Every structure is written in C-alpha cells, then in structure tokens.
Amino acid sequence: MKILIVGAGSLGLLFAGKLLCVAGTEVRLVTRTRQQAQLINHNGIIVHEGDDREVRTNIMCTSFEEPIHADGPSDGRFDWIFLMVKQTHINAALLNYVMKTAAGSTKLLCFQNGVGHVERLVEASIPANRIYVAVTTEAARKDVDNAVAHTGAGITSIGCVEKREARDAMFMLENVLKSAGFHANIAENIETIVWKKLLVNSVINPLTSIMGIRNGQLLSSPHCLKLMESLHIEACEVLQRYGLHISDELWEQLLEVCKKTSANSSSMLQDLLAGRETEIEWINGSLIRLAAKQHIKIPAHEAVYNMVKGLEQLKRSKH
C-alpha cells in the first residue's frame, strides 16, 4: 500500500513513523516548510512510545512548496492520501495540491477536527465517493520537527461520506493501521462520531485556551467543571435536535478524555500561544451556526467563541 501523508504535525509524524514499520507499506510525507523536510530527510522520524521505547525510521519527505513526483512511488500514484493538516491550512493552494496529487483512484482520508472541510473538498471537485473521514483519539506531542512522543493510545475510526464506499479498500487500510500498532475500526456511523468528537473539543479546547491550562487542570476546579457542564448541555441540545443520538455516558466520556490527556496542552491553546489562527471557527463556530438554523441560543458557546477570537487578535497584534 502506498500512502502520502500531507501534514507533519504531531499526528502526521506519529502515523508516518509507525506506518513505516509495516512491511509492504510505502509512505511519503509532505511538510509545510523546506526546513522540516530537510531535517526529516537527513535524520528520519523518531517516535517515543510511552514505555520509553524509541523507534527511528527513515522516510522520503518533501515540503508543500515542492513537487512530489520525483519522490513518489514508482508508478506516481498513491492508494491513499492522509490529509493531516488543520482546518486553518485548507486553502485554495492546498486544495489544488491535493487535486493534482490524487490521480486515478487515489482515496483521501481526512483527519481534521470540526466540520466543514469535506464540503470544501467536494466544492473543489474531489469526488465525494473518494473522500473518507478519520476520527482518532490518539494523543501525541511533537517535541522537535522530526520527533514525536506517543502520549496516549486511542482509537481511529474510518468511514466514507457516501454509502458507495469501497469496503475492500477500507478493510485493507484498517489492517495496515492495526499492523502499525493502532486500534482501528470501520465505522458505519462516522458522522455521529465526528460530531461527538466535535462536542468534546468544543468543551475542552476553548476553556483550556482561555485559561492557559493543560487539559487535566479543568477537573481540579468546581468552577471549571461548571463551565464544562454548561458547554456540554448546550452542545447536546444542538446535536439532539440535529438528529443525533447522544447517550447519557457522553459526559463521563468527556471527563475521561480530560484524565487521559491530563498532561497535554490542547491544539487550540498551542495555536494561541504561537500566535496562529485557531480552529474555533470549525468547532464552536459550527455549533453556533447549527444552533442558529434551529433558532436556539447557546450563550456559553457564543461566549467562549468570542473570547478565543479576541485572544487570537490580541496575540497576532503582538507577533
């Protein structure tokens, strides 16, 4: 199987490093900068597992600005493209890049948080029956540009946005992911899983960003828990009206995510600290827009949305 991974953040490095260890799997990586690509080409990828084990693998890597045909597989085609960039990086240039690279029957697997990216890919003339969605709870931390720590094992669910999916291709991919050490499954209800992850992110990410704390610190204060509960209740109402079944156990699952990722800084907090645009627009913003269509108010989400957007502007003005 030939896989192109676009995006070399923490998850991109983790998946690339582990997939390279699977016999018969050819992996290529695309980074945002030439500097990171050169570092990885010279030194490979280092994956630090939780048991103090270190895995080093060599990989052919190129930057987004450079053509990939010289580094691609022998026939110039990939079976899968893993799109592992953030929502904020899906722009016209990236869409054009994916269009040119997804030759023939290449399938696209999207790992983005939030919603809205699939619609943008379809609008860019990528056939819907070749677009697949992945939701992963794997936890990783990028230490340097070619090294990543696997801080928590999770589950990676994959599904197709259309019913006419190629199940054989998904089964093959599922087996490759399992061979790499990931817990993977094919999900019939991928849309529900996407929205449930969005709900979790809509609670944890903005609160940790606004307060500048790690995920686990949310559980140490009754005031933080009260805020979490308000966001959770509002999001549940929106999604239930949308037609999704929200189980009573979701609140406990949300708390469990905080515990399992207690030492992690959310990606939204990392973006804020670095002066980058966050994914708030596609997480809480998506819930706010969906609530507006239902003619209901979700004031807690509106409040954290505006606070994060305000912090974005303040941070950018300082950089």
Rank of each mutant, 00 (worst) to 15 (best):
G216E: 11
E229F: 11
E256V: 10
L290P: 05
C224E: 14
V194N: 03
G285R: 09
I283K: 06
A292D: 15
N284A: 09
L287H: 07
V238G: 01
I296G: 06
L255R: 06
S266T: 02
S220E: 15
C258A: 06
L207C: 09
N284H: 09
W195P: 03
S209D: 11
S262K: 12
S221H: 09
S265T: 02
S220T: 14
L218Q: 05
R276E: 04
P206L: 08
R214N: 14
W282A: 11
W195E: 05
R241P: 01
C224V: 15
M228W: 04
K293R: 14
S286Y: 12
H232K: 04
K259A: 06
S230Q: 14
S220R: 14
T208M: 10
I288Q: 05
S220D: 14
I193R: 03
K226E: 09
Y242M: 12
V194W: 01
K293I: 09
E252P: 04
I280Q: 08
N284Q: 14
N201H: 06
L269I: 02
Q253N: 12
D248N: 08
G275D: 01
I210N: 13
S202D: 05
A263I: 03
I246E: 06
V203S: 07
L287P: 10
Y242D: 07
D271E: 01
N264T: 02
W251R: 13
G216D: 12
V200T: 05
M211L: 15
E277W: 12
H232V: 05
L239W: 00
Q253E: 15
L290N: 09
Q294H: 08
C258M: 11
I204N: 04
L287D: 04
C224I: 13
V200G: 02
A263V: 07
R276Q: 05
E229K: 08
N284E: 12
V257T: 04
L272N: 00
K226Y: 08
L290S: 10
Q294N: 07
I288F: 05
A291F: 06
I296R: 09
G216M: 11
L250A: 06
I246T: 04
S221N: 13
E237D: 06
V257S: 01
S262M: 08
S262T: 03
S262W: 04
K197A: 05
L199D: 04
K226G: 09
V238W: 01
S266D: 01
C224P: 05
L272R: 00
